[in-house]
Design a protein around this nucleic acid. Sequence first.
DNA 1: GCTGGGAGAGGCTTA
DNA 2: TAAGCCTTTCCCAGC
Lengths: 250, 250
Amino acid sequence: MDFAFAVEKIRKGISNNHLVIVFGSCEVDYQGRAISTLSLGKRLVLIKGDGSISIHQNRLVRPANYMVGAQMNISFGHEQAILSAVRLKPKESLKVVFHSIDSVESMEAEEPVDLRLSGSEKDLNDLLMQDLSIVEPGLKPIDQQKVFRTGIADIIAEDKEGRLVVIELKRREADYASVTQLHRYMHRAEKIRGAKARGILLAPSIRKNAKELLGSLGLEYAKLDFELLPSSKDKARIKGLEKSQQTIRV
Amino acid sequence: MDFAFAVEKIRKGISNNHLVIVFGSCEVDYQGRAISTLSLGKRLVLIKGDGSISIHQNRLVRPANYMVGAQMNISFGHEQAILSAVRLKPKESLKVVFHSIDSVESMEAEEPVDLRLSGSEKDLNDLLMQDLSIVEPGLKPIDQQKVFRTGIADIIAEDKEGRLVVIELKRREADYASVTQLHRYMHRAEKIRGAKARGILLAPSIRKNAKELLGSLGLEYAKLDFELLPSSKDKARIKGLEKSQQTIRV
DNA sequence: GCTGGGAGAGGCTTA
DNA sequence: TAAGCCTTTCCCAGC
């Protein structure tokens, strides 16, 4: 494909905020948060209307190189065409040197952003807030996404003995980070209230080591069994909750 | 574009492990780790030779929908063509219903995987292991990527007083997780050695709250100043290291 | 296969 | 803008 023609098409596509797809032989250099080079090879370059660019190889979902919020520019000579993308904050630059361009497609692809998703943590959170007795009889909701100085607790509640309960919710297996998160919030809640609080981690499963840590910190874990529902009023359903034996806080 | 022709081209591309690019009007349904639906709109579908598929809109680097390691299948009728991708573990399925197909490109894009990257955490780790005196005079390397029961410590060293030093290295701003990681390893090292150990967090910067936590856990922080070098023998250079005042462990 | 953790993480939400 | 954190995180290396 002729560089002059290809470059003109790409340039027009970019200025119209089109979705521009370029397939060709290129080298790629990136400098910014790291430095990387990709030697000559056939690749797909995707330029989007919001200033994001990604270079894809024929493997993996993630691009080999990419950039968001970039200012794009393309020029060419006899031997090559150069697409450069720059960004100021953080300072980054991406240079795609095309040795040949096989095809260019530029298309208008405006559309409403309307991915409907069920099964996010937020969905589960909303469900639980409707009825916390699933977690424990007599548990009353006080707050959700409660902002502490040390982070944001998913759910704050009060148990039937009047103790403050901090709940951390995970839609997938809980790990070390989940446990330390919860611990931070519980610690903070105790400091504010000036009284012992409880911390409960709710997740479909938890890693063995993380559970050990959780126990040693005096936190509780309950297995959360849920199913996803196709986008309707309720996006998920909590099927049940199985508490592991009470851990005693030391 | 005629469905029969388009579908045949896609089918052939998939079976040849080509990089297949389809642009068209489609709806997308995903069921697996979540459930999502994307209503009718113009999108780009990328099918790769390793069984990954992604559906891109004209914004963001990340795809609206995607799947890796999928088995792909495509069929068509009068009104629509359906591309379905399935995966067994975890059980996932992705269905792309095309109402129209504007273009299909299928290209061979085999190439060596050769992204050369400078400035990864590993690069910095290697550099530090060459000369730990940058961190502190008399500091001697003992091990790197040391596997503990509770995780993997970046660097283990011994200071001039013979105390064990656990070092956690971050290539970017350190946060809560960085601190708790280091704390876990230090705690573990002490348990194994039966003696007090030190923990040093090395990072270009650290969040205010994370630094507070670090201090309260008796850990140390040192600001790591480094620059990236274009792929050469050395991939980075450590320009300096600035220790914050010693924190006293309580 | 599971586990731990890095990533140029991206991207969203709230303060 | 910064901080915090969720993500269908993806992806890789070790065991």
